[in-house]
Design a binder for these strands. Structure first.
Lengths: 199, 199
DNA sequence: CTGTCAATTGACACCGTGTCAAGTGGCTGC
DNA sequence: GCAGCCACTTGACACGGTGTCAATTGACAG
């Protein structure tokens, strides 16, 4: 279902990636990808059954390329809960711009395409686990705000770190990436970390 | 361009609204709306030039119906900055579920349709003004966190209150509406209001 | 020399939006 | 009572994008 000439296959993935990055995920058609990969549109379907399948494969390709797992796993090395929270925000927040194009394309298909919705959902679930791990670490250190249960805190962190929010702050509000990261770290602390006022 | 039989026109708007609400904005075609309004698809185009135009008209119809302006303006009556922040979050946060269906449909068109993008952008700009007013009031009371400029604070509040975030928390995380409102109020305070620890 | 197989060419179906031309039926004014 | 207007209908079609199919080409392998 996906193992013809491996050379062509990765040429397709590269083409898809480039186009999606360049156009921020908007208006990239099968024809365009084929053209850029130097094959015909129909040949695309010899490698990927549907547009959604190709897009999903592209995200995995990107993950490998950028070492997504390594980055996120690294954030688990941090000692204290707070360090871990910071490290996770840096890792994920720094990864968003890299996946933004493809993420947007997938996001746009979600409403109409079941497979796309599921694939994106899975990725978001993975990301959520990172949030949860940070919250658990915070809680272990007795530093989680008493206002929220670990689950609620996870929901909040997960929502704060959504791709849409990154889009809104950096693209719509014009924040530089560095400010995005710094502000999100500060926001997360204010919201999730217990006040240590009396000490 | 939009003034034939006013009866039919509002029947169309009602139909569009019902369908968009019922289906959360997903998969509502011109045919469906026409059918529900009791006319043909082609007749729709006698009243609204394009799907985007119809959707936009539907949002205005909804605003009138629900008294959107009144609600949001009411939040400006509050005395202190903090009251105003709370009032605004309650007003807007309470309005989101009502517009969610149509908002999602419009949101989905944004990538492909210039007019839809612009219309949604304008609405979000209006909403942003509400955020800004609350921030300014907070600042006037000397209660705005020194960590953020009024503009940055507005960006943050505006992003926190996005429809997408509401969707994620209520629909994906399963939060009841009341919890959404309460949590967002508490979040906004923690983030935007200056610490009054020493007194 | 034959078979295999990736890829090509060209055609077509499906869907949803938007357009057009000709027809229908009701109400209005003279 | 009929002429004309006008909202709406019917039916057809174009367009763009995805997905499918059949027949063909050309390379390489045994």
């Amino acid at each position: 279902m996906s193992s013809y000439n491996p050379d062509t296959r990765s040429r397709i993935l590269k083409a898809a990636l480039k186009l999606l990055e360049a156009s921020q995920g908007k208006g990239v058609r099968m024809t365009d990808i084929a053209k850029r990969a130097g094959i015909t549109r129909q040949a695309l379907y010899l490698h990927f059954g549907t547009r959604a399948e190709l897009l999903i494969a592209t995200t995995h390709y990107l993950d490998d390329l950028k070492g997504a797992d390594e980055r996120l796993v690294a954030s688990r090395m941090a000692q204290t809960g707070i360090e871990r929270l910071d490290a996770f925000i840096e890792a994920w927040g720094g990864y968003i711009p890299e996946i933004h194009g493809i993420a947007k394309a997938l996001l746009a298909m979600m409403d109409t395409d079941e497979a796309a919705a599921q694939a994106w959902g899975e990725r978001m679930q993975d990301m959520r686990e990172g949030c949860e791990a940070a919250i658990v670490a915070l809680n272990r250190d007795d530093m989680l705000s008493p206002d929220y249960s670990p689950e609620q805190a996870t929901d909040i962190l997960w929502t704060m770190l959504s791709v849409r929010n990154w889009e809104q702050l950096t693209i719509e509000c014009g924040w530089p990436q560095a400010r995005y990261i710094e502000t999100l770290k500060s926001l997360a602390r204010r919201v999730l970390v217990a006040d240590r006022t009396p000490d």
